[in-house]
Structures are given as C-alpha cells and as structure tokens.
Simulated scan of single mutants.
Amino acid sequence: MEIVDCYRLLGLRTGASYEDIKASYRRLARIYHPDANPDNQQQAKERFIQLTDAYRRLTSIVKPSPSRTAGTKPANSTPNPRSASSDERNLNRSVQSTTPPAASPRKSSSPRSSPRSSPAKPPPSPPNTPSVQFAPDLSSIDRRLKQNTYEQLQQALREQRFPRAITLVEGLAQRMPNDTEVRQWQAITYQRFGRYLIKHNQQEKAKLYLRKALRTDPNNRSLWYEVERDLQRIEQVEIL
C-alpha cells in the first residue's frame, strides 16, 4: 500500500501529524469495527483491516512531535474557556435550540444565612442532561460516537484545524446520514472554513465551501444569512 493511499484511507491530507493520524484512526476504527456493524460484519472487517494496516504503515514513518514525546503539554494547547470562538458558540446554539430547558429549581425553605456566610453556589446541572440530541433508536455505540465527535469537532474549530474538523463531521455524517443535527454541524463547519479562507485570500476556494454549506443545510435561515454576507465580502474584495 502506497503512503498516499494510507493517508487517503484515514481521511487525511499527505503530511498530517502523528497526532492527527492517531486520532483519525481511533475514530474510524470505532465506526468500522465489526462489532459495531452486526448487519455487515464482513465488509466492516475488511475496511477495519485496511485502516489498521494504513495506521501501522504511517506510524512507522511519522513520529510524535517532541513536545508529545517529552510528556510536556505544548504551549497554548489549552484554550481559555472565556474566549470560546464563534464556531463553538454556533455549534452550541444548534444543540441548545433542540434541547428542552431544564426545570427551574425550587426555592429553598431553609432560613436565611448569616451575613458572614459564603454565597450559595448555583445548583449543578441535571445529572443526565445530554450535550447533544440523540434519536430514540440510536444505539449506545452511536451515542458515544456522536458525543465524542461533537467534542472533538468543537476543539478542532477552536484551534482552526479545519481539515480535521471536516474529516470528523463528514465521517459522522456518513455514519448518520439522516441526523439533522449532524447535518447542521457539517454545514457550519463548511461555512467557518469558507470564512477562514476569505481571510487568507483564497476567494475561489472559499466560494466552494460556502456553497457547499448551503447545499448541506438548505433550510437553515441563519446560515443562509451568514453565507450571503460572506459572499458579499468576497465580491467586495474582487472589485477592489
């Protein structure tokens, strides 16, 4: 198997880092593991073996970055929670718009605390409140997969690692083609990448991804509004 084919099987661009290779393999291995595909085990097994061979071939050539092997965390690797990007806010909004609000807590009947007592902490979130929406017939494996992919997608968008974000969301969309929430994430990812390309003067490529966002989620009015603004920005740049 050629090196280029190994990258292609793992959904990566040539020259991807060791960490990206490892993350992509883990994600795809969960999707194509024979145990996760009881209705099509033989085909899943063949794909699983191909993925494993590609992973072994690449990791024998590509080595971890020095900061990883030394056990130290790279600088600025942990994003500031107060500076969450618009990408994460958009993904969160797409989830919150379909998640029913938690019931407001009852007022406590305990007597007033003394002036010197510390202020009361806000009540914790309900223990089983999901961060994403799950269809009733979704298997436990697919539930975990969707939740994990959502979290990885948020991180990739925060770090502006758009090729990885696209690989994540497209893989999930192939697994769950009828999930409207996943389709929203996919369209948002395309739109954010298009906006990133505008900033880096790649106008033609930006147009492709912005139009791809519209085709992916054509009924999302807020997305249409943002894409139209982005396309107008491109036209202004081209006029100048």
Rank of each mutant, 00 (worst) to 15 (best):
T72P: 09
V62A: 04
L210H: 00
V169Y: 02
T52N: 12
R89C: 02
T216R: 04
P124Y: 12
W224C: 08
R13H: 12
F193Y: 11
Q154T: 03
K121E: 08
R47K: 15
D35R: 12
D217W: 11
Y190E: 05
A187G: 03
E235R: 13
R161F: 03
E204V: 06
S83V: 06
E170A: 08
I61S: 13
Q152C: 03
A102G: 03
I234Y: 04
K207R: 14
I198W: 01
R158E: 15
R211H: 12
Q152H: 05
A120Y: 06
R93C: 07
S97G: 09
P38H: 02
N80G: 06
I166D: 07
P64E: 11
S97H: 10
Q232N: 15
Q155V: 05
A103H: 09
L28H: 05
P115T: 04
Q133A: 12
M1L: 08
L240K: 13
A213F: 03
P119A: 14
E159T: 14
I239W: 08
S222G: 10
A84Q: 11
A156C: 08
A173V: 03
D35M: 08
V227C: 05
A206P: 02
L197A: 00
Y7M: 01
S60C: 10
S97M: 10
V182F: 03
L197C: 02
R192N: 12
R211W: 10
P218M: 09
P123S: 09
Q96K: 14
L12F: 04
I61F: 10
Q160G: 07
T98N: 13
L10K: 02
F134V: 02
Q147G: 07
G11M: 01
Q186I: 03
K212F: 08
A36P: 03
L153W: 05
S113D: 15
R26F: 01
Q154W: 04
P79E: 10
A44M: 08
E235I: 07
S117P: 07
A165C: 06
R221A: 15
P101T: 08
I188P: 00
